[in-house]
Each structure stands twice: as structure tokens, then as C-alpha cells.
């Protein structure tokens, strides 16, 4: 009992009140730099971890390459030397660091191409897939979540929440295969894999529509599996907000129920979801590995899957760093956005 803490000195707070607004605006630059600095440190840790994590993986990449074609011992030694694998671990680490500093992630063992070139090639398909899925899942989840909260315990709420939970608990690969078999295999409504049919010139409207057609099944899979978390977060957040006193004020002012919800309750309930939404985008990218593999979508997820079966260490390092960087940047963005949205945090 004696270690309880009294709230911070009221005096200090009261005296700050008048000048506080000026000073917190000035401190925005400091806040921005601190956040960017934190993100940079995380990124450096990821880069270091990326090197060691894949050295622990079992399997010798050179032996794997040697299996595919007959090679002499000298050729194997030559290959080891070429990839720098004959050097001590610390020297390899140093090379890795200096190379990354210049944007060089090394050369893929399997593809025989620079990793950065491969990543650049597979990056945009992944963005198209996960970006579309994220936008749809977030919109659908938040919209259904706020309706579910507003009509909590109604049949709508029970059906919406129940359905989303069932889809959430379904394994991603199982749902992907099921959709593939029914709509791709049996009904032939959608293609069974790939991003674009062969023989269509890039850049034409026809190409664009063809890609969209290929996107349908993978996007449905990803959205179905993840929208539940947005729905549940939004539902809980709005339920908490619904008993707030300022909503009574809004009603007393003569707002319609619809306006009370849209103008007052939902914007406030959205605040706590912002951080979660952006954090979950990281999880979405992780889920892309499964979906891309099942639908042969030429993205980073599929590339990673192929790299693991090598193990194609430089490629793994590359995708690992890129995935992590996306998540770190998203979190940084969430922090900055939240600060912009919630005036109460701007002071902190």
C-alpha cells in the first residue's frame, strides 16, 4: 500500500496549461527525430539478425548446388571461394555489412542474379496483392465492426462476429486450396495461378484487367482470414466509447443517432485501432508467403519460400530485411499518424 503512486503533481500540470500548446508544437521535430531514430536502430538490429539467423539453418547451399550437376572437388572449392564461404564467419559478416551499406545483398545461389534485382522484380506483385487485401480487409473489418458494436447483441452482430471468427480460425492454406479447387478447378471462373496470362502485352488495359482477374482468389483468401481482427478490435473499441458522456451531450444537442455515431463515436473509436491496424499489416505480409505459394503468385512470399528450400542464404537475407523494413516503416507511420489524429497525444 505504501508504494502506491500519487498522480503526478497537479501543480505542474495546471501551470503548464497556458503555454503548453506552444511548446508541444515546437517539440514535434524532436518527436519525429526520436521516432525515426528508433526505427533506424530497429532496422540495424534486423540487418545484423538477418545474417546470423540464416547461418544457423541446416543444409549446405554449395552441396545443394553440387547435387544438381556433377562437380569435382576443385569446382566445389572454387564455388565456395566465389561466394566467400571459405572465409571466417567474422570476415563474412564484415563483407555482408559493407555490401548492404552500398545496397548490395549479394548474389542468389539459385537464380544466379543479384538479390536486389530479384527483390525489385518480385516487390510490386506482393505490394499489389497485400495492399489490395489490406485495404479491403481493413475497410470491411472496421465497417462491419462499428455496425456490430452499434447494434451489439443483435442478430447482425452475432452473425457478423461469428462468421469472422470462423474464417479467422481456418488455416490459410486450406482455405486457399479450397477456393482454388472450387472456383479455379471445378468451375473454371478464375485462373489457378500466376499473375497474368501469357502473351498479353504489358501496360495495356487488357493486361491490367487480366492481373485483376488473377488477383481475385488470392485476395479473397487473405481478406477472409484477416478481416476478423479488424472487426473485433473496432467492435470492442466502439463498445467502450458508446457509454461515453460526450455522446449524451451530442444527443442532447439534437443530433440524429446516425450523426452521433458517424461524427462523434466512430472517429474516437478509430483511434485505438490505428496502431493495431498498422501492426497487423506486418502479419498480413507474413500470410502472403502461404497465399503466394499456393496461387504461384510471383511475389516476395513465393521468392522467400523458394529461398528457404535452398537454403539460398543471400536471397533469404534480402527478403528478411525487406519484410522487416516494411513492418518497421508501417509502425513508424502508425506512430506519426496517431499523433496527428489524437490531440491528446500531441502533448506527450
Amino acid at each position: 500500500m505504501s508504494t502506491d503512486v500519487i498522480p503526478p503533481g497537479k501543480a505542474a500540470i495546471a501551470e503548464q496549461q497556458d503555454e503548453g500548446r506552444e511548446s508541444h508544437r515546437q517539440s514535434f521535430l524532436g518527436y519525429l527525430l526520436a521516432k525515426i531514430g528508433g526505427a533506424a536502430i530497429s532496422l540495424v538490429m534486423v540487418v545484423i539478425l538477418g545474417f546470423f539467423a540464416f547461418r544457423i539453418l541446416p543444409g549446405d547451399p554449395v552441396r545443394k548446388i553440387a547435387q544438381s550437376r556433377p562437380m569435382t572437388a576443385e569446382q566445389i572449392a572454387q564455388l565456395r571461394h566465389q561466394y566467400g564461404l571459405d572465409q571466417p564467419m567474422l570476415a563474412q559478416f564484415w563483407n555482408y555489412l559493407t555490401n548492404i551499406a552500398t545496397g548490395n545483398f549479394g548474389e542468389s545461389y539459385v537464380y544466379g542474379k543479384p538479390v536486389s534485382e530479384l527483390i525489385a522484380q518480385y516487390f510490386w506483385p506482393t505490394i499489389a496483392l497485400t495492399g489490395t487485401s489490406a485495404i479491403l480487409a481493413i475497410t470491411l473489418g472496421l465497417w462491419m465492426g462499428q455496425l456490430a458494436a452499434w447494434r451489439s447483441n443483435s442478430p447482425y452482430d452475432q452473425v457478423a462476429t461469428g462468421t469472422s471468427l470462423v474464417l479467422w480460425s481456418v488455416p490459410t492454406f486450406w482455405l486457399a486450396l479450397l477456393l482454388l479447387m472450387i472456383f479455379g478447378g471445378t468451375l473454371h471462373w478464375f485462373p489457378t495461378g500466376g499473375m497474368v496470362s501469357t502473351g498479353i502485352p504489358t501496360g495495356t488495359p487488357e493486361y491490367f484487367l487480366n492481373v485483376l482477374w488473377h488477383l481475385v482468389l488470392p485476395v479473397i483468401t487473405m481478406v477472409a482470414v484477416v478481416y476478423a481482427q479488424y472487426l473485433l478490435v473496432m467492435r470492442a473499441s466502439l463498445l467502450e466509447e458508446m457509454s461515453a458522456d460526450y455522446l449524451t451531450t451530442a444527443r442532447a444537442k439534437g443530433l440524429t443517432e446516425d450523426l452521433v455515431r458517424r461524427r462523434h463515436a466512430v472517429p474516437n473509436a478509430l483511434l485505438p485501432t490505428v496502431t493495431l491496424v498498422f501492426m497487423h499489416i506486418g502479419g498480413l505480409i507474413g500470410g502472403a508467403v502461404t497465399v503466394e505459394t499456393v496461387f504461384s503468385w510471383p511475389g516476395l512470399g513465393k521468392l522467400t519460400y523458394e529461398a528457404i528450400s535452398g537454403p539460398d542464404t543471400p536471397l533469404l537475407q534480402g527478403t528478411f530485411v525487406v519484410f522487416s523494413a516494411i513492418i518497421i516503416v508501417m509502425n513508424l507511420f502508425a506512430d506519426l499518424l496517431y499523433r496527428q489524429l489524437d490531440p491528446r497525444v500531441r502533448r506527450a
Binding site: 461515453a244 458522456d245 460526450y246 449524451t248 451531450t249 451530442a250 442532447a252 462523434h264 472517429p267 474516437n268 483511434l271 489524429l341 489524437d342 490531440p343 491528446r344
Partner: peptide, 14 residues
């Protein structure tokens, strides 16, 4: 019109 206990949470915080 109503004057709520505004010192608490009767105003929209954002």
C-alpha cells in the same frame, strides 16, 4: 439545453 458535468468527460476529447 443541458449543462453536463463538463469537468469530466462531457466534451468530445478530439
Amino acid at each position: 439545453a443541458v449543462v453536463f458535468q463538463g469537468a469530466m468527460h462531457a466534451l468530445n476529447p478530439v
